[in-house]
Design a binder for these strands. Structure first.
Length: 863
RNA sequence: GCCCGCGUAGCUCAGUUGGCCAGAGCAGCCGCCUUGUAAGCGGCAGGUCGUCGGUUCGAUUCCGACCGCGGGCUCCA
């Protein structure tokens, strides 16, 4: 037999006998590949393993580990499901059944029941179907590819009205091909002919399908599970019949299937509706009506902190604060166009003496009235109006979903009015602002969607206007280096937009922020400003929201953190537990001190065993538990038990800061110097607010207990000595330790102590008893080192949101000489010194070697 | 709005194939225990079995409607 030559993806050529199939080619390459091959791609088109190759074909073997292989497995599984359903439910028919993310579905219509309407599946049916599917798998029925003429196909599928629509080209099926008078089919010949044949001339199952498929029902298909049944309109049209959709999940291995099911359970544990209830944050009382929430005190404090932070950032961002009422005369919404375009989404009107009043579905009309309250000059632009504005929308009952989709919610809403010339810069800074705020809440994985002009927008705006606006949005995305996709035609009828999605802790995406152009409303409502040329112009209007809705954002945060809010947002930050009831006065003293410092602290008295009280604090996901007993009362200490770990050590309250004791503050002055970089959480953009410098002033970090027992705490650097021991032994060059900088009198070092995450320490080179003992020159250089370190971290890791807390005092933990201790952590972590544990790992998340290299590269040159 | 499912104590859930006073754990309250880093012991209280209507001698249980919730579809300026 003559040989043919095949090209493989790596460009190599291979000679095989004529008539060799895709599967045969895989086998000729290797046994492992033959076993793993699901399908092939021949000249870019996916083909079954049984496909015969021709001279010159370029062939790629696709295995189950690839997306396309998995896709095929799911596609074949849904065929098997359809087969099972059609056999088990005589008279049933089927529509389409594509693979989808994580699995597949198929849409069915069952024969009419006693009431004349098509019957429906009940959950028990899924078990029967699944059982039948497993029998089909065991039979190893081949997937037989064929092509039928349209006429023949109409005979075969005569009893299946939805398939006929597909054959006739009226309906689209993403997995079948209907070109040029032929339809492709896949048949699964059964072991025994069906008692009630469903297809003319076939003993069992056949489906319209482009393929490809796995070779037979036994190969690759076992790892699936039918998940649920749901209604779905035929062709997605609510005027067409509702079909019964069965969803399933399918994977290449049992391990992956189990992992997927496990992930679903994990996601269920994070469900914000469950957590909101468990943590007593908010509720949806039936008496209130669907889609409406009440916020309990613990949810309320978190919301308040979110809103306070939002206001603070907006104030700094040049926004002006406005308020508009919750209801408005219908005439306003006629003018804005809402009654024309959005009536279905609005609550019905209230009849009043002078017309109908509607709850507002959006804040923009009200803001426009503020813009229009007097004549505006170009000198006032950009005008940025901000409101935490509560809106009401009549969402269909079936769409409500916890906090994610509700009927009354608060937008952190802004409308920006600017000149066309300003739009470019405005959009650009806006996107940076949005991302900076989202980062502050602990998100750092973003994706964006750029939505362009839809067909329905023909009459709104000009071609040039749309093009320029879209370009401005694109430029901003590129300037931020943000990955984005383009949704062609996906914009609103009034303008293009950017939607920002974040990826949460378990990889799910949430759409939060939106930045939208509006070419429509300013014109409709007659908004104008007087330009430098003395004539009137229509301003560019931008809508934007960061959280989107405060409620929804709260829900996303809750799921992101699985209820364990970062310290700065936690309803209770610190709980103090007296071991015995006679320790209670001391516990109160500690809690009062923390409260006076602006922390949210409480005390739980000793009615129960300590273990149980700690357990309760853990289930409430409190960031810190402080335990005080006999030893602590005697020595003025507290035992620290942070969230996520057990007992962590002890804090000593006796030592006062060096500067305070000596009356000489070599480093205190520069710390509050506005030119010195972010010296407080407030300055860096939030956190518990002013008072940071005082916050832990009376405490010193002395991780005095058990330090060194845990290899993760002091990370031996090769020779069994801690990094500190090695550094102070001075027997290593800088590039083998993590010394980042050496000055005249001080140096900076990166260390893993005490949490296995990066700390940047700036230290004097000579041993001094305490900071008060520094010379003026040393203090100055120490501070310069701190500032350089902050700059380096900002440059190398986080351009925003780095807080710097500074410990003053004789920090003697782990035998470290007196030092100035710089904590670099994102604002969401809170910023008290022992509260940095988890946070710092996120700021310098890499191995020390990598962080060290990056920081050294980013270290600013001395002034 | 449409399809399927669900609704028993604050929470998580038993149970009733139509019948005596509807159960448990946790949470709550009271008492004992004086407590050292994720559950000490005992007691008490708590439910018109989502609401309304129907069938029945009798309904938490069967039927209907409504309300709410969940999963989908549709929708989402």
């Amino acid at each position: 037999m003559a040989d043919i030559t095949i090209t493989l993806p790596d460009g190599s050529e291979r000679s095989v006998p004529a008539g060799t199939t895709v599967g045969g080619l895989a086998a000729s390459i290797g046994r492992g590949l033959a076993k793993a091959a699901v399908i092939g791609a021949v000249n870019g088109t996916e083909r079954d393993l049984g496909w015969e190759l021709a001279e010159g074909d370029v062939v790629e073997i696709i295995t189950a580990t690839s997306d396309r292989g998995l896709f095929t497995i799911r596609h074949s599984t849904t065929h098997v499901m359809a087969q099972a359903v059609l056999e088990l439910f005589p008279g049933a028919t089927f529509a389409i059944g594509p693979p989808v993310e994580h699995g597949f579905y198929y849409d069915f219509e069952l024969p009419p029941g006693p009431d004349g309407k098509p019957a429906t599946f009940v959950p028990e049916d899924l078990e029967r179907i699944e059982a039948r599917m497993r029998e089909i798998l065991a039979q190893a029925q081949p997937f037989v590819r064929d092509e039928l003429s349209n006429e023949r196909a109409r005979e075969v599928f005569a009893g299946h009205r939805y398939k006929l629509e597909i054959i006739d080209g009226e309906a689209d099926d993403p997995t079948s091909a209907t070109a040029s008078g032929l339809v492709r089919t896949y048949e699964n010949p059964p072991a025994e002919a069906w008692a009630q044949p469903a297809f003319a001339g076939y003993p069992g199952f056949i489906d319209l399908c482009r393929g490809p498929h796995v070779p037979d029902t036994k190969s690759f298909l076992g790892h699936f599970k039918l998940m649920r049944v749901a209604g779905a309109y035929w062709r997605g049209d609510e005027k067409k019949p509702m079909l019964q959709r069965i969803y399933g999940t399918a994977w290449a291995s049992k391990k992956e299937l189990d992992e997927h099911l496990h992930n679903l359970e994990e996601a269920a544990k994070r469900d914000h509706r469950k957590l909101a209830n468990d943590l007593d944050l908010l509720s949806f009382p039936d008496e209130l009506g669907g889609g409406l929430a009440v916020w309990h005190p613990k949810g309320g404090i978190v919301r308040k902190l979110m809103e306070d932070y939002s206001r603070e950032r907006h104030a700094k961002g040049g926004y002006e604060f406005v308020y508009t009422p919750n209801i408005a005369n219908g005439k306003l919404f006629e003018a804005s166009g809402h009654l024309g375009f959005y009536r279905d989404g609005m609550y019905p009107p209230m009849e009043m003496d002078n017309g109908e009043y509607y709850p507002k579905p959006m804040n923009c009309p009200g803001h426009n009235l503020i813009f229009d309250a007097r004549q505006r000059s170009y000198r006032e632009l950009p005008l940025r109006l901000f409101e935490l504005g509560t809106v009401y929308r009549y969402e269909k009952s079936g769409t409500l979903h916890g906090l994610m989709r509700i009927r009354g919610f608060t937008q952190d809403d802004s409308h920006i009015y600017c000149t066309p010339e300003q739009a470019h810069d405005e959009i650009r800074s806006l996107l940076g602002f949005v991302l900076s705020v989202l980062r502050a809440f602990g998100f750092d994985d973003f994706e964006a969607m750029l939505s362009t002009r839809p067909a329905k927008a023909e009459t709104v705006g000009t071609d040039e206007g749309w093009a320029e606006a879209t370009e401005n949005l694109r430029a901003a995305l590129e300037a931020e280096g943000l990955a984005y996709e383009v949704d062609e035609g996906g914009g609103a009828f009034y303008g293009p937009k950017i939607d920002v999605k974040v990826r949460d802790a378990i990889g799910r995406h949430w759409q939060l922020s939106t930045i939208q152009y509006d070419f429509n409303m300013a014109t409709r409502m007659g908004l104008e400003y007087v330009g430098a040329d003395g004539s009137r112009h229509t301003p560019i209007m931008l809508h934007r929201a960061l959280f989107g809705s405060v409620e929804r954002f709260f829900g996303v945060l809750l799921e992101h953190y699985a209820g364990a809010f970062p310290t700065w947002l936690a309803p209770v930050q610190v709980r103090v537990l007296p071991v015995r009831d006679d320790h209670e006065p001391y516990a109160r003293e500690v809690a009062d001190e923390l409260t006076a410092l602006g922390l949210r602290a409480d005390v739980v008295e000793a009615d129960e065993k300590l273990g149980n009280r700690i357990r309760k604090a853990k289930t409430e996901k409190l960031p810190y538990v402080l335990v005080v007993g006999d030893d602590d009362v005697a020595s003025r200490t507290v035992g620290v038990n942070p969230r996520g770990r057990g007992r962590a050590g002890r804090l000593d309250r006796r030592v006062r800061p060096a500067g305070g004791r000596r009356g000489r503050r070599p480093v205190a002055r520069p710390m509050t110097d506005p030119g010195a970089g972010p010296a407080s959480a407030a300055e860096a953009g939030g956190g518990p607010g002013p008072g940071l410098a005082r916050l832990w002033a009376g405490w010193r970090t002395a991780y005095i207990e058990r330090l060194g027992d845990d290899p993760a705490e002091v990370r031996p650097d090769g020779d069994g000595r801690s990094l500190f021991e090695r550094i102070f032994a001075s027997d290593l060059p800088d590039d083998e330790t993590h010394v980042l900088w050496r000055g005249e009198t001080c140096f900076a070092v990166l260390n893993a102590y005490p949490y296995g995450s990066g700390h940047l320490l700036v230290l004097p080179q000579r041993a001094v008893a305490d900071l008060g003992g520094l010379t003026e020159a040393e203090a100055t250089e120490l501070w310069a080192g701190v500032r350089a370190g902050v700059a380096a971290i900002e440059a190398a890791y986080r351009p925003d949101g780095v807080n710097v807390g500074i410990n003053l005092g004789a920090g003697a933990g782990a035998g470290v000489p007196d030092h100035l201790h710089v904590h670099c952590l994102p604002r969401w972590s809170g910023d008290t010194n022992f509260m940095t544990a988890v946070a710092e790992a996120r700021v310098l998340p890499e191995p020390l070697e990598v962080s060290s290299r990056k920081l050294r590269a980013a270290w600013p040159a001395p002034a």
